[in-house]
């Protein structure tokens, strides 16, 4: 498919799900899909900065959790959810920009970036975990330490705190946000900026020699990724009216990487499908006692890294797209160019 055709097809599929799922699922099913969508937004942020920007963030949940906490604190103080939603994107964006400044302008290697982002997540976890007690309140909002923040007010109709969204409307908001993020990322990738970003991923030195300040491009990509992850965190907090430090946990960070790796690196569809698939798997594992979820997720990660490092979506696309004379290079090339 060409760029436009795949774009239209994806958005149409998204809209079909947006309006179709409420007819197919009961309320419980729809609620479950809503949290899957929040995870898919997080997966998109990881898929964007890793698959296109080549930035190896191991701590995307830092921004996810930060977005969730920002929303919770702000909405408890303000009542109306409009500004808190914006803040839940803005604060992680700024935090990512600050962190990105130290990392990219320090010109540290990819592996170091992985370790630093991972460390930031771990330390955020420890910090938020220790904020139990009355001392740690921001305005009306008690951070609650390891107990998390319960009864966070839900989204409301913008500007009208007295009319909160019911679960079905929350689904529309969440899925709508996912579609918007997808469209935004497609537009970014189709723009001149997006092309430079992909060029940097392909060969950073060459991009520098062509006169692009690769540090700045990576910084902006990282900040955008942080903002999107923050939006995901906001949706997640909304879904359960609850947020706790486990969102910063190592298991959570690993899950995001697994979404992207299983779905397919260098695609936007892959992370979304990966998030839905893995989340579904986790909910299945949760219903039985025999197998531990960490064990399964860890095994999946190891197996995919060793055997299917490019992920499911590119492999499937490759099967459909094999040209008659069997030039295998086309497959990899297609995965690079088309989201």
């Amino acid at each position: 498919m060409t760029g436009w055709a795949s774009f239209v097809a994806m958005v149409a599929a998204g809209l079909a799900l947006l309006f179709g799922l409420p007819m197919v699922f009961d309320l419980f099913g729809l609620l479950q899909m809503t949290v899957f969508v929040a995870m898919a937004v997080l997966a998109l942020s990881q898929g964007f900065i890793w698959g296109y920007g080549g930035v190896m963030s191991f701590g995307q949940t830092a921004f996810f959790g930060l977005g969730g906490y920002t929303y919770a604190v702000a909405v408890l103080n303000m009542g109306d959810s409009t500004v808190p939603v914006l803040l839940s994107v803005l604060v992680p964006t700024l935090f990512a920009a600050l962190l990105g400044y130290f990392m990219f302008y320090g010109r540290i290697s990819d592996a170091y970036i992985g370790v630093i982002t991972l460390t930031v997540t771990v330390i955020l976890f420890n910090v938020v975990n220790s904020t139990a007690g009355d001392f740690y309140t921001i305005g009306n909002a008690a951070l609650g330490g390891f107990n998390g923040m319960p009864s966070v007010p839900p989204l409301n109709v913008p500007g009208d705190p007295s009319s909160p969204l019911d679960p079905e409307q929350t689904w529309y908001a969440a899925m709508g946000a996912l579609i918007l993020v997808y469209v935004l990322l497609r537009m970014i990738l189709a723009s001149r900026f997006g092309r430079v970003v992909v060029a940097i991923r392909e060969n950073e030195t060459r991009a520098q020699l062509l006169g692009y300040d690769t540090r700045l491009y990576k910084l902006v990509v990282f900040a955008i990724g942080g903002g999107i992850a923050g939006l995901g965190g906001c949706l997640y907090t909304n879904w359960g009216s609850f947020i706790s430090p486990t969102v910063f946990g190592l298991a959570a960070s690993a899950q995001v990487l697994i979404y992207v790796l299983v779905g397919g690196l260098g695609t936007l569809l892959g992370p979304i499908l990966g998030a839905f698939g893995i989340q579904y798997l986790i909910s299945l594992i949760g219903t039985q006692e025999a197998v531990n979820a960490n064990l399964v997720l860890g095994a999946i990660l190891v197996v995919f890294v060793l055997l299917v490092p490019q992920g499911v979506v590119p492999v499937v696309r490759g099967l459909f797209r094999r040209v008659p004379n069997g030039r295998r290079g086309r497959v990899a090339e297609a995965a690079v160019v088309e989201p």
Binding site: F58, A251, A254, L295, V305
Partner: peptide, 9 residues
Amino acid sequence: WGLSLAVIG
């Protein structure tokens, strides 16, 4: 990292 999760599990 996968190994780490698996060992924890």
